[in-house]
Structure formats: structure tokens, C-alpha cells
């Protein structure tokens, strides 16, 4: 194809997206569109399955049977969501194994928030309330993104996630209505998870490299800073209901803007964690790689079994 032809196709392609048409797997697409989607979608999938680890850490220690089944179901949903997203990414011509390879070698990223440790039960509440809260803000607009399989996967994910944040908030509420010790546990969790949750919505617009292109392809509908503001504005009143204090002295309602002003985010910490030096980066990768390697003989055996069965069938037929 000549450059001229490609340019023409690209223009038609962008026009389709601008008309709100969906792009489907077999449609022609610019290579950059394919690569960007593979990157973002696989990163999203990785975040789901790495995200299973910090919460999975508390399954055996959940304080009641009711909490235990809710947590199990939630972490299981995350596995499901990872699976939907990997499957959707596979339509772009990359296998799940290749994506795992990228994760395990550190080539692919996942959400930094999961590199923080879950050290008390209240962290289950804080993650559900804050981390899922921030994730929902990011995810809901993606239900309408331009790539069909991604949009469909996200519709499923969002539908199922609706219980996750409620699950977390309920844990917090119970702690805040409990003994002083429980309330303290809740406040401590908020103190530790608040800033990482704000960072989770991505670097400031000035530092964000992919935003403009992503907006055009509807991989993003709002800028990181707008999303962050939205998250803060909706979360502060929830903290009030809990009777908890947001750990930010500069947090103040701004009548003029109709929004909360907030303090400086420690971006050095953010980049440190992104670059692999957060408190749990090594542990998380070790757990993922370990599970994959320990499972290898199992996966091989299951394939070998089917092949043998097939062979036997064919022999019988002869």
C-alpha cells in the first residue's frame, strides 16, 4: 500500500470513530491504534490479576464468614475481569501467553496501587471504597470506547463491579461504627491509601504523554486531572459520612470552582513505584511468575491428555 493510500485509510478510520462507529477486530486499523490498544488493554488486564494479590492476602483471615465469601467473590471477579480483558486483547493478534511474558519480564505495566501492602483488615475496606472507586471513574467511560471488544468487556466489568465498592464502603462503615480501636484501624487505612488512590488516576496532564491520541480514540474521555478532581469531590462527602478525616491539610471546599482544592501529590513516590521500586513490586511479580511457573506442568499435562485422547479416537476410527 502506498503512503497516500494509507493516509486515506487513516482519515476514513478517524472519521468512523468521530462518528461514534465501533471498530471491530477484522477491520483495517492503523498499526498505532492496534499497538496502543494492546498496551492499554493488556495493562488493564494485568492490573486485574495483580490486583487479586493484595486482597487475596486477607481471604484466609477475613473476620467473619459473610466477609470471607464476599471477599472471595470479589477477588474471583477480578480474575474474571482479567480474563475478559485478556480475551478482548487477543482479538488484536497477541496471545495471552505473550501478554503474560510481557508482564513477567517487566515490559508491561500494571496499576501501581497494587504495589502497596495490605496490612490490616481495614485495607480491604479502603481498597474497595477508594481503589475501586477510582477505578470505576476510569472505567465507566470506557464502556463507550471505540474498540468494540474492549467496550463490550468493559460493560461486563462495570456491571459486575458495582458491588465491589459497596462491599468496601460497608466494611469501612462497620469499622467506623464499631469500637474506637476499629475506627482507628479505618482511619489508618484511609491515611495509607488516600494518596496512592489519587496517584492511581495517572500523572498530571502536563506529564501525561498519551492523552491527546487517547482522547481521539475514546480510550480516554477526560484528562487525568479532571478524573482526579471528580474522584476527590465524590469521595470527601463519603469520608464525612464515615466520620473519617482525609489526610490532607490543604483540602478545602472552593466555592468558586464548586470543587475541593487539595494538597500537593508526591509525584516522586509515584514514579518510584511505577519504575518498580514500590514496597511490594518484587513480591507481586514473584507471586505472579511463581503461579505461572508452578502451573506449567499442569497446563502441559492437560494438553497432553487431550492429544492422547484424540489419538486414541483416531486409531479407533481406523
Amino acid at each position: 500500500m502506498s503512503d497516500e493510500q494509507i493516509k486515506n485509510l487513516e482519515e476514513q478510520f478517524e472519521a468512523r470513530i468521530a462518528r461514534d462507529e465501533k471498530i471491530e477486530p477484522k477491520d483495517w486499523m492503523p498499526e498505532k491504534y492496534r499497538q496502543t490498544h494492546i498496551r492499554q488493554m493488556s495493562q488493564h488486564a494485568h492490573s486485574e490479576i495483580v490486583g487479586m494479590l493484595p486482597e487475596g492476602n486477607w481471604i484466609t483471615r477475613a473476620p467473619s464468614l459473610r466477609r470471607k465469601v464476599a471477599l472471595l467473590a470479589k477477588v474471583q471477579d477480578e480474575a474474571g475481569h482479567g480474563l475478559y480483558l485478556y480475551s478482548a486483547t487477543e482479538t488484536l493478534g497477541i496471545s495471552r501467553d505473550e501478554m503474560y511474558e510481557q508482564l513477567h519480564t517487566g515490559k508491561a505495566k500494571y496499576s501501581s496501587i497494587f504495589n502497596y501492602p495490605t496490612i490490616t483488615w481495614a485495607d480491604m475496606g479502603a481498597i474497595g471504597w477508594l481503589v475501586d472507586g477510582a477505578a470505576i471513574i476510569n472505567q465507566v467511560p470506557l464502556c463507550n470506547t471505540s474498540y468494540g471488544p474492549y467496550a463490550r468487556a468493559m460493560i461486563r466489568v462495570c456491571k459486575e463491579e458495582s458491588f465491589h465498592q459497596r462491599q468496601g464502603f460497608e466494611i469501612m462503615l462497620k469499622l467506623c461504627n464499631g469500637t474506637p480501636e476499629q475506627k482507628e484501624m479505618a482511619q489508618d487505612a484511609l491515611n495509607r491509601w488516600w494518596w496512592p488512590s489519587l496517584m492511581m488516576l495517572g500523572p498530571t496532564d502536563a506529564e501525561s504523554i498519551h492523552t491527546e491520541q487517547s482522547m481521539k480514540w475514546k480510550l480516554k474521555r477526560k484528562s487525568n486531572d479532571d478524573l482526579r478532581q471528580q474522584f476527590i469531590d465524590q469521595t470527601v462527602p463519603q469520608a464525612d459520612i464515615l466520620g473519617l478525616t482525609i489526610p490532607d491539610q490543604d483540602l478545602k471546599w472552593n466555592e468558586e470552582r464548586g470543587s475541593y482544592d487539595f494538597g500537593e501529590i508526591d509525584w516522586d513516590e509515584f514514579w518510584q513505584v511505577v519504575k518498580g521500586h514500590g514496597p511490594m513490586n518484587r513480591e507481586r511479580m514473584k507471586a505472579r511468575v511463581g503461579a505461572w511457573e508452578r502451573g506449567e506442568w499442569v497446563r502441559d499435562a492437560a494438553m497432553a491428555y487431550v492429544e492422547k485422547k484424540q489419538e486414541r479416537k483416531e486409531k479407533q476410527a481406523v
Partner: peptide, 26 residues
């Protein structure tokens, strides 16, 4: 079975084992 959640040999198997755990706790 709950201990395995997040550590299964494939995602599909992981989900299945968690289902077993959930059934038992139910």
C-alpha cells in the same frame, strides 16, 4: 481452596477453584 485464589495454574482454573471454595463456605 481459598488459599489458592490468585495462584492457580490458569485464570480459568483459578476461578473454578474459588467457586468450589465459595460453595463450601456457603
Amino acid at each position: 481452596m481459598g488459599e489458592l485464589c490468585g495462584h492457580g495454574p490458569t485464570l480459568e482454573t483459578d476461578i473454578a477453584c474459588t467457586n468450589i471454595s465459595l460453595d463450601l463456605f456457603g
